[in-house]
Design a protein around this nucleic acid. Structure first.
Lengths: 130, 130
DNA sequence: CATATTCTTGACAAAGTTGGTAGACTTTAT
DNA sequence: ATAAAGTCTACCAACTTTGTCAAGAATATG
């Protein structure tokens, strides 16, 4: 797992929504210091991934689709950056074969990393981060 | 931390050298199934990073510069892929500010990930993977 | 010494990812 | 009507990844 800025922005936006209840793109952009146009794109993805809902028109905006304690960090990271595992050769949800395949001992080490990260991020929710 | 193929190849080559004692590029290439020209480049980096030594000419080749149990996985991964941390905002050796900076609780989660990964990879050596 | 073998070095390149931006469109409160 | 939101598609520059290529330098062997 390597976090991109986009994923970090997504996490910030979700935390913000958890705090405020509801908010508009411009206000999130200013308070979280996220480039407006980039944030629009991110909020759209968050909606497509069922993490937020939106309302259009004046006084529109966004809010969390589920309670903050039902949105895990794992879900957010997976949605934006893909595998939590350090290499897709040991990924559960995004498995792909790779060069390391032939070395079981090495695979084991990275699987232990994957398991730790996965457990940690599954049990941490946006609520915990507010 | 996200492993690239290059890093995985580097790990494979080091394990191979630990097993064989010494070996030539072509033989490593064939046995580990690493593209020859790419491997040349990787072995050069491994030498520059003081992980292997080389001998030129016929019957030349490569061997580990240090005993296998003195080469940690952490060192190899850091040399090729940079930070072990999931984001450079929580990296010790490669720190850079990032969007997450403003959220201490979130930083903490990722620091715990970093610490686990770091400990795990520091104490795993090439010797353990042979 | 000649030659073949092997490592050395620097450049290059196609494809994919990252971190955005632009602008036209749709919905809706007033 | 109009203005204030979100929606959607497309685009772009910079960087990283995954290699390839070719010429050069060192050295063991005959």
């Amino acid at each position: 797992m390597k976090l991109t800025h986009k994923t970090e922005y997504a996490i910030l936006a979700l935390i913000h929504l958890a705090r405020e209840g509801e908010s508009q793109t411009e206000s999130i952009s200013k308070e979280c210091d996220i480039p407006f146009k980039f944030l629009q794109q991110i909020l759209r993805e968050l909606r497509l991934k069922q993490l937020v809902t939106s309302v259009r028109g004046p006084n529109g905006g966004f809010k969390l689709k589920r309670p903050a304690n039902k949105i895990s960090l794992a879900e957010v990271v997976r949605a934006f950056d893909g595998p939590l595992a350090p290499t897709s050769a040991v990924s559960v949800y995004f498995y792909e074969p790779g060069p390391l395949e032939a070395e079981p001992k090495t695979l084991r080490v990275f699987k232990e990393v994957r398991d730790f990260v996965s457990k940690k991020l599954e049990k941490t929710t946006i609520f915990d981060l507010v």
